[in-house]
Amino acid sequence: MAKTFLKNLNKIALTTALTSSLLVTGCATSELLSSNSHVSTNTVEQTLVEDQVVAFGKPTTKLPNMPANSVVIVGEKNSYVLSEGGLDLVNLLSTLDAKSISVDKALKFYSPKNDGYFSGTMKLSYAKLKDEFKRSDLQFFLQEDGKECSTASDKRIGAQRFCFSIPIKGGVFPQVSNLRLLQSKFQTLTKPYSVSIYTTSTSQKVVKKEGTNAAQKLVLLPFALAFDVITLPLQILD
C-alpha cells in the first residue's frame, strides 16, 4: 500500500515538473519572439528629386563653398554644381570624338544627409572600329583609367569599347537665371538625360504616407542671388 502511494506521488511530482518546465519554456519562447519582432529594421530608399538635364555649363560667378572651376549640370528644376569630377568629365568629352561616346542616361546621385550635398558616379563608354584607334588614344585611355569593356556585339563588327567611371561630388542650388535661354538654344535635344537624387532611411516600421511629394523635401544650398551659366560643349552628347 505504501509502495503504491509513493509510486503515485512520484508520478504526480514528475507531471508537475514537466508541466512547469513547459510553461517556463513557453513563456521564454513567447518573450523571445516578442523581442525579435522589434529588432528587425528596414532600409528605405527615397527619391528626393527627379529632373531633366537642359545643358552642362560653368557658373559666371563663383558660388559659395564651391571651387571657381566647378561644372554645372543645368536642370529644369535645380542646378547641380559639381565640386569634384566636373573637370575630368569636360576633359574626357572634349578630347574624345563625341559621336563615339555613350553616357549612362540615368544620372543618379546620393545624398545621405539630405543637406544639399550629393555624390555619385558618371559612367561613359567610348567605342570605335579597332583600326580607327590611334596610339595616342590608347595612351589617353591609360591616363584616364579607361577599362576595356567590349561587348559581344562590338566584337562581331570588329569594334572595341572602353569604359570610364568618373566619381562625382557636388551641391544642389536653385534654378539658373538664364534657363529659358538655354532651353530655347537646345530645344532640339532628342535624347534627354535625367538626373535624380535619393537618400536612405532606416526604421523599424515602414509607414507609407499617401499624397506626400518627396521632391519637396530636397534641401537646397542657400544662395541669395540667381546665377547664369556659360554652356560647355557637352551638349553634343545628344
Results as ranks from 00 to 15, higher is better:
Ile230Ala: 12
Asp238Trp: 09
Thr200Gln: 11
Thr60Cys: 11
Leu189Pro: 04
Leu89Asp: 01
Ala106Lys: 15
Gln143Ala: 15
Thr61Ser: 11
Thr15Ser: 10
Pro112Arg: 06
Val103Arg: 01
Ser102Ala: 08
Glu144Trp: 02
Asn213Asp: 15
Ser70Trp: 01
Asp154Trp: 07
Lys185Glu: 15
Ala226Trp: 07
Phe223His: 04
Val72Gln: 04
Ser79Asp: 05
Ile236Leu: 12
Val81Thr: 08
Asn42Arg: 04
Ala224Gln: 07
Phe164Arg: 04
Tyr80Val: 01
Lys58Asp: 06
Arg161Met: 15
Leu89Tyr: 09
Val172Asn: 00
Lys169Arg: 10
Tyr80Gln: 06
Leu234Arg: 00
Lys108Cys: 06
Glu148Asn: 09
Leu142Glu: 03
Gln139Ala: 13
Ala152Pro: 12
Met122Pro: 03
Leu6Asp: 14
Ala159Asn: 01
Leu182Asp: 03
Asn178Ile: 09
Leu87Ala: 09
Leu182Phe: 05
Asp104Gln: 12
Gln216Pro: 04
Asn178Pro: 04
Ala28His: 01
Phe173Lys: 02
Gln216Ala: 13
Ser125Met: 10
Ser79Gly: 02
Leu218Thr: 00
Met66Trp: 10
Tyr198Cys: 01
Thr200Asn: 14
Tyr117Lys: 10
Ala17Gln: 14
Gln216Phe: 05
Leu32Gly: 08
Tyr117Gly: 01
Ile230Lys: 01
Leu218Cys: 03
Ser165Tyr: 03
Ala106Ile: 05
Thr212Cys: 06
Gln216Asp: 14
Ile166Asp: 04
Gly211Asn: 11
Glu76Ala: 09
Thr202Glu: 13
Gln143Glu: 11
Phe173Thr: 02
Val195Pro: 00
Tyr198Gly: 00
Ser184Thr: 10
Phe5Met: 13
Asn42Asp: 09
Pro233Leu: 06
Ser201Glu: 13
Leu182Ile: 05
Asp97Pro: 00
Phe173Gln: 04
Ala214Cys: 02
